[in-house]
Structure formats: C-alpha cells, structure tokens
Computed example of a mutant assay.
Amino acid sequence: MKKKGFGLLLTVLLVFAIAGCSSSEGKSVKLAYVAWDSEIASTYVVKEVLESKLDAKVEMLQVDAGPMWAGIADGSADGMVAAWLPSTHASYLEQYGKDIEDLGANLEGTKTGLVVPTYMDINSIEDLNNPEMAAALNNRVVGIEPGAGIMMATEKALTDYKLSDYKLLESSSAAMVQELGKAYTNNEPIVVTGWTPHWMFANMDLKYLEDPKNVYGGAEQIHTMVRKGLKEDMPEVYNFLDKFTWTPEEMAQVMVEIQAGKSPEDAAKSWVEANEDKVNTWISAE
C-alpha cells in the first residue's frame, strides 16, 4: 500500500508539473521596444499586465528599430507593440513582414513629421529654404536614434525639399527633447523630428510643419507584432497581445507621469490599477 501510495503521489506531482509547463506561467516573455517615450509607456504597461495578471516573467529588450523587427522575425524576441505603419516602418515591414505575425493596430491616430515651437514664424517644410531661417537654425534638424523610421523619412525630406544645406543630427529621443526644451525656454528657433502621441505637446506649444510633398505620410497606427508560433507556445500571452488596444489619451497619461519623475514601472503599475475594467477586457478568454 505504501508503494502504491508513493507511486500515486509521483503521478499526481508529474501531472501538475506538466500542466504548469504548458501554461504561460513562469515562462519568460521577451518584449522588444525602441526608446521612444510612447513605446516605453506602452511596453511597460504590457509588461505590468503580463506580470501582475498572467503570472509571466518579462524580459525587456531595448533596441533600435531595425533589431526590434529582426528580433521578432528570427524568434529571439516574442513580441513588440511598437510598429508604426504604414509609413514610418514601411521598410522594415517589407523586409521582415513574411516572418512576423501582425496582430493589428493597438493605437490609432499617430503622426510623425518636423516640429517647431509655435512662436516661430514658419508653417511649412518648404519655409526652411529661407537662408535667414537656415542661419537662425544653424542649418540643423535635431533628430533621434539613427535607423529610426522618422530619421529615414527626414533624410528623404531634406532631399525632396532640396534642403542640402541642412544637417540631420543623430542623437536619442531623450537628447532631442532636452535640446527642444532648452531652446523653448530661451525662445530660440529649433526644428526637431517629432511624433504624436508624445508628452512634449502637452508641456510646450508646438506645431507640425506642413508637408506638401507628403514625405511623412498621413495619420498612422501603431501595430502589435509577434513571432510566429507564439500562439501555440503561450496562448494566454498571445490572446492578451491580440486584444491590447488603447487611445493616445491613455498613453499620454503614462508618458506624462514618467516625464514628471515616475519610473516606467511605477507609472505603468498606477495606470493598470486605475484601469482595471479595460485591462480585464484585454485578458478575457472570450
């Protein structure tokens, strides 16, 4: 009887072990993202939901746009919620799209382009051709990370609008905003690569320069992309990522808190706790 009892115990333990391995619980979910303020906000919210609601472990992979797409395509990352389409990341979609599963838009109504403070007497990218304006701007456009879709679009804009006297400065999202903030405080002219949603539009009076040649495209969407096979490997994680959608206003709430000094983890946690009903629709089995 003792042997039978011991054998039964082993069988029960084995069944529980197998059941545990078949769920997403305890598995590591690798999320790739670019260090844009918008993508930091969305990716950390996704991380918080995965960890607090689905008991998953999350590994955050901060990379440039190219490696982000490549990582999903080759399976070294499980997913990302940072694909700007149809224009900004068009080249990456063309290169990697066949090896990635597109779960659709998680946010509607984004925009990219060249941004200036509203106190500047300039309204179109074409106005940058004015020699006096070029001199006032030190013949420079302040950009972000090299390889970002908006940087490639801006290189094209400089060509298409015949702005050969201008140099596109490579930096980072944080450095770009720092330069913008310094110029804004001193009421100085500056032009930067900008996008919406972004907290800088809430903190400063800014405007997009008109783009008559439509180099930057119109309104965009941010899509969720996952590696092939994720649905079979981690069905709960896949279900959540497939249902994850929110608004620019909701994203801005997280961005503003981070900009005000909260860590991305704390800002995401606060937002998830305050929006339980919405979060529950993301993780429901229906």
Rank of each mutant, 00 (worst) to 15 (best):
D233W: 01
K167M: 09
S173D: 10
G147A: 02
A175L: 11
E273S: 10
D211G: 06
M133N: 06
K182Q: 12
W271S: 02
V177H: 14
S171E: 07
A268C: 07
L206A: 11
A153W: 01
K243W: 00
E265I: 07
N214E: 14
E220A: 13
Y208E: 11
A202K: 15
W195G: 15
E210Y: 07
K231V: 02
V254L: 03
R140Y: 00
T245R: 13
A260Q: 10
M151D: 08
L230Y: 10
E210W: 05
K269R: 11
Q178P: 02
V226P: 09
A202F: 04
A157L: 02
K167S: 09
M176A: 03
W195P: 01
W246C: 04
S270N: 14
K162L: 14
M204Q: 12
S173F: 13
V226Y: 07
K213Q: 14
A267C: 12
L163R: 09
T193V: 15
K213W: 07
P248Y: 01
D160G: 06
N214V: 09
D211K: 05
W271Q: 02
M176D: 01
S173N: 14
M200G: 00
K228L: 12
A136V: 06
E265C: 00
G194W: 09
G218I: 05
N214R: 07
T185A: 15
W195I: 06
S171W: 08
K262T: 03
M234C: 09
G149I: 01
G149R: 03
V215H: 08
S173E: 10
V226S: 12
F201T: 03
N187W: 13
L206I: 15
Q221P: 03
D242C: 02
K162Y: 14
V254K: 01
M225S: 07
E220D: 10
E220T: 12
E210P: 03
Q221C: 09
I190E: 12
I222P: 00
E257N: 15
Q221V: 14
A157I: 00
A219M: 03
Q178K: 15
E265H: 01
K213G: 11
M234N: 13
P235V: 06
A175T: 08
T196C: 03
A134N: 00
G147E: 04
F244P: 07
N139A: 02
A260V: 01
D165E: 14
N138L: 00
F201C: 05
A136E: 12
P189H: 11
A252N: 06
E257T: 09
K167W: 04
H198A: 09
M225T: 07
K207R: 11
W246H: 11
A174G: 08
R227Y: 04
L241C: 08
K167T: 13
V191G: 05
V215Q: 06
V192R: 11
P146H: 00
K228S: 11
G194Y: 09
E170N: 15
P264S: 06
A252T: 12
M234G: 04
K207A: 13
R227H: 03
A183F: 10
D242K: 15
R227V: 06
M133D: 03
Y161W: 07
D205Y: 12
N186P: 07
P248M: 07
K269S: 14
T185K: 14
G217L: 04
S171G: 14
